[in-house]
């Protein structure tokens, strides 16, 4: 039982990004980068399945330039067995990455693919569903629990209004929600050891996959801010304002 996880390198979730003065993009020069938080949940779940004896190997893949080595090292330090970097100089969009992961799946033949449900930079949330579609695999998005028995994964998903549980025949694609687990802290010795592990690099251009961007970024701006209103000093004053100035019948 082999599990494949994908790791995206994104701006650290604590950082508020700034827009470049010319509005061409966000300014991420010198900004702290890290593993997309939902991808950490995916890695953690794969490692737990291995620790439960339900998986034998966990492989991590990332897409980008050599700087992505840092997120793959993080995955190795968490405990994944192998790491692959699919190298591409140009920024890859969701559909291109889905096609590239498909080629990695065809090569690695994992029984299960666990991805984060979305990345915190693009906020698109498309990758898992796109990959499952391209592979004609079963999919379970927004997973809050995964139970593996033989060749079936039973997955509980967080959906609007409650939860839904699905049974998927493997191989399948699952996307991780934050409540799936709490990712482990990486200990410094593990990080040091991970530095010595080899990372296999594949040039995206050698995979024979069209990966041109389909969406053109025309402009980036700060959204219009919602203006702060007034402070009220008491519940009575609040109700007076809501009733009088806003005309709400309370």
């Amino acid at each position: 039982m082999k599990i494949l996880v994908a790791v995206k390198r994104v701006v650290d979730y604590n950082i508020k990004v700034r827009v470049k003065p010319d509005g061409s993009n966000v300014d991420i020069d010198g900004v702290k980068m890290g593993v997309n938080p939902f991808d950490e949940n995916a890695i953690e779940e794969a490692l737990r399945l291995k620790e439960q004896g339900k998986a034998t190997e966990v492989v991590a893949v990332s897409f980008g330039t050599q700087v992505n080595q840092d997120v793959l090292r993080h995955a190795l330090a968490m405990g994944v067995d192998r790491a692959i970097l699919v190298e591409s100089a140009e920024k890859l969009q969701s559909l291109a990455v889905a096609k590239l992961i498909k080629t990695v799946v065809e090569r690695e033949q994992p029984d299960l693919i666990i991805l984060g449900k979305q990345s915190i930079d693009d906020d698109a949330g498309q990758m898992g569903q796109m990959l499952a579609g391209l592979l004609n695999y079963p999919q379970a998005t927004f997973a809050s629990s995964i139970n593996l028995e033989g060749k079936v994964a039973t997955v509980t998903r967080e959906v609007d209004g409650g939860t839904e549980t699905l049974a998927l025949d493997l191989p399948a694609v699952i996307t991780a929600d934050l409540r799936l687990n709490e990712p482990r802290f990486v200990k410094l010795p593990n990080l040091m050891m991970a530095r010595k592990k080899p990372i296999e690099t594949i040039n995206a251009d050698t995979l024979g996959i069209e990966h041109e961007p389909r969406l053109k970024l025309l402009k980036v701006s700060e959204p219009p801010a919602r203006k702060a209103g007034i402070r009220v000093s008491s519940v009575e004053e609040l109700l007076t304002k809501l009733r009088g100035e806003e005309g709400i019948n309370l």
Binding site: Q93, S94, L95, A98, A124, G125, Q126, M127, G128, Q129, M130, L131, A132, G133, L134, Q139, T141, F142, E158, V159, D160, R214, L215
Partner: peptide
């Protein structure tokens, strides 16, 4: 959660970005 579960699968199979 309904639509974002389905439409990326559709867009990939139509070979278009979503």
């Amino acid at each position: 959660s309904f639509s974002r579960n389905i439409l990326p699968r559709v867009s990939a199979l139509l070979d278009v970005a979503m």
